[in-house]
């Protein structure tokens, strides 16, 4: 009975946050298979440790992003090794649905994908900590406060990482 109750509660969390975590992992890794693994592992760890999650000024969303970030960074070597992005576009074209309501046609999507691909390549030359802050800030559109919460850093440190990341990225573009 308790297990069923837990499952229902977790299903609600999964349904609410799955898309966000999936898209974040996709933008960080640029690889569908790895994204699926990261998303599955994130929710699996959240499911197991949900009792340890206590409201301490950290939202559930930030907690999930934190788990996902750790997962991605643990797979960093794998992320670097795999040839990325080839499957992203085809999957998105097949899906044809976009959570943000922007239903793009295939030409627009291909163009957007190309831009992303170039940027992802440049980002992949940076250290994971810079990739993380830049992805959270400019792709996930998180505020400095939220990023600080996710990464358990001070807001000033986040600002410094963003600035340094941008400078390093500029050198790669």
């Amino acid at each position: 009975m308790a297990a069923q109750k837990d499952r229902a509660a977790f299903e609600a969390i999964f349904n609410t946050y799955y898309t966000r975590i999936y898209n974040y992992a996709l933008r960080r890794t640029g690889n569908i298979e790895l994204t699926k693994d990261v998303a599955a592992e994130t929710f699996s760890k959240a499911f197991t440790n949900i009792e340890r999650y206590k409201w301490k000024g950290v939202s559930l969303s930030s907690w999930l992003y934190r788990i996902a970030t750790n997962e991605i960074n643990q797979n960093y070597r794998k992320v670097k090794r795999i040839s990325p992005l080839n499957d992203v576009l085809s999957e998105q074209l097949q899906d044809g649905t976009h959570a943000d309501g922007a239903l793009l046609n295939s030409e627009e999507m291909a163009m957007q994908h190309k831009k992303f691909q170039q940027m992802h390549r440049a980002l992949s030359h940076l250290k994971p900590k810079y990739q993380t802050v830049l992805t959270l800030r400019y792709f996930e559109e998180k505020s400095i406060k939220e990023i600080a919460e996710i990464l358990t850093l001070s807001q000033n440190t986040v600002k410094t990482h963003i600035r340094r990341g941008l400078i390093k990225l500029r050198a790669c573009l």
Binding site: Y18, T19, Y22, N23, L26, R27, I32, T35, K36, A39, V88, E91, Q92, Q94, D95, T97, H98, A99, D100, A102, L104, M109, Q112, H113, K115, F116, Q118, M119, H120, L134, Y138, F139, L169
Partner: peptide, 14 residues
């Protein structure tokens, strides 16, 4: 960076 953002997908299949 903002312009290169990959649009959100619902990922219904996965």
């Amino acid at each position: 960076l903002r312009q290169s953002r990959l649009p959100d997908t619902d990922a219904p299949k996965s």
